[in-house]
Design a protein around this nucleic acid. Structure first.
Lengths: 159, 159
DNA sequence: CCTATATATTTCAAGCTTAAAATTTTATGC
DNA sequence: GCATAAAATTTTAAGCTTGAAATATATAGG
């Protein structure tokens, strides 16, 4: 089992350091997310999940399959179904049949969806900056880099 | 140094830098959280919200009022009600009447709750370290510090 | 007292989220 | 061709989450 090895400095158990990091990360994330959620609700009568879906659809302008949407957003399949349903009800998104595969459907933003998203995205960017901007560009870039390093893990992506 | 003013380098709009940071932060957070959620479910047949509540109750061993729990965890009042209900059903938590105020109730972990939480917390810490440990202690501490700086904002806390 | 206001909590309706099961369609092996 | 597996999506049941309304109790002001 244990033996000699990298005997850790007293009081500085590595996993404790990771735990501290995780708790801080979570706190900042919740803080910012709560702020964004409330503003999105009050100013656009919308929600974060809706914004996320619209954001993905705006990036992939030609449309995405439900499964792609699910993968990109890291949420379950069934979840996406409901959100897209509601966006479609509101005339912001649209399901387009895929020729040659009657199982799948391409989801796209409608014209109104694009316009509405761009309006929201502009505000969203400002809100995020208001929430995190105090870090300054250097520290922000530094932290972004650290976060990317933290993520290089199960990244067996082949693109 | 640079030449004139803080005139931003072309293509480097400050709010874009904040946005990049936010998106990376969110990605890491979701990654780790998805991992923790699944393990908690598979190994302890529990959930993250339950773990969070138990964690708070473990820290404040004498019990907390529902409203305190809600504030500490940054979730809504009504939310806490349901989670504590289920913990109570499972014999892990307990509502104790507050003498002198019949509106309020102290929530506490039961003996079983304490034991169960400590078992889970041990695993949880290891999981977090597995997810974030690749950063190493220095970078972890660096990032924790940056996160704390990002949070010093509406912090008018007086402790 | 008694009314008004504040506090602590729960209830409610709507939406989000997941994992698992069910459905429908496509691809593959024989 | 036909059974069987794989893939895309939806449905389902349970739990999480919120903001707002409802309850119940406590605290003041008059």
């Amino acid at each position: 089992m244990s033996g000699e090895k990298p005997r850790q400095a007293e009081g500085a158990v590595p996993s404790k350091e990771s735990l501290r990091l995780w708790l801080r990360l979570l706190k900042v994330q919740r803080h910012v997310e709560a702020d964004l959620r409330e503003r999105l609700r009050r100013e656009f009568n919308s929600t974060l999940p809706r914004f996320d879906v619209m954001s993905a659809l705006h990036r992939y302008r030609d449309g995405m399959k439900m499964s792609e949407l699910s993968r990109v957003l890291m949420v379950s399949n069934g979840n996406v179904t409901g959100i897209v349903d509601r966006l479609a009800e509101d005339g912001l998104a649209l399901r387009v049949p895929v020729p040659g595969d009657r199982r799948a459907a391409m989801v796209r933003l409608t014209k109104r969806g694009v316009e509405e998203f761009e309006r929201q995205a502009k505000a969203h960017e400002a809100w995020v900056h208001a929430a995190l901007g105090r870090l300054g560009p250097e520290d922000s870039a530094r932290m972004t880099a650290l976060l990317e390093r933290a993520l290089d893990e199960g990244e067996t992506d082949a693109t």
